[in-house]
């Protein structure tokens, strides 16, 4: 099948990678949250001296917000390195789309940093990017769907 072939031969950079947002490990939590809001992103990669050392996503932010709303006293001026996840699962830029989808689906990740041969992040694969990539492969049936899923004429026309 054609589609199957594409998934196993096309590399992950075809799947609409987002620009990687980066911040240094010393950036404050407040600044990181503001960057995410301004850039309309749900995750940011954390680097220290050009090396990728962590990731901070909206799920981490949500936990902090929930704790803060309960009166848990979150110090927004602390550096992001105290809140980030240090184990970052990433894929190489030569990985196929199919393999990346598998990694994402099995691990339950919503964003996967894509790194080049120098271990530098070149993009971020997101669930929405993959959906868009999939839609690209069968635009005919997706883009020409009737406007309503359950369509029935109210009465016979012209009768």
């Amino acid at each position: 099948m054609d589609f199957q072939l594409n998934l196993n031969s096309e590399t992950v950079d075809h799947a609409y990678l987002g620009q990687p947002l980066m911040a240094s490990a010393e950036t404050s939590l407040r600044e990181v949250l503001q960057i995410l809001r301004e850039q309309h992103q749900g995750g940011i990669l954390i680097q220290k001296e050009d090396a990728l050392v962590g990731i901070f996503t909206e799920r981490d932010a949500l936990r902090l917000m929930a704790a803060d709303a309960k009166g848990g006293q979150v110090d927004y001026d602390q550096p992001i390195k105290n809140f980030m996840q240090t184990e970052v699962v990433s894929v190489a830029d030569k990985t196929t789309v199919g393999e990346s989808i598998r990694v994402m689906s099995e691990g339950g990740y919503r964003r996967l940093p894509v790194i080049n041969s120098e271990k530098l992040p070149t993009g971020v694969l997101t669930v929405s990017g993959i959906l868009h990539y999939l839609v690209d492969h069968f635009p005919q049936v997706i883009y020409t769907l009737p406007p309503k899923p359950r369509h029935a004429a109210g009465e016979r026309e012209g009768a």
């Binding site: 809001r37 749900g42 709303a69």
Partner: peptide, 17 residues
């Protein structure tokens, strides 16, 4: 959604609780 939380609450969770 989570995204609403990030964009609308951001760092004022305690004030908006």
């Amino acid at each position: 959604s989570e995204r609403d939380a990030l964009h609308k609450i951001n760092c004022s969770a305690a004030e908006m609780a």
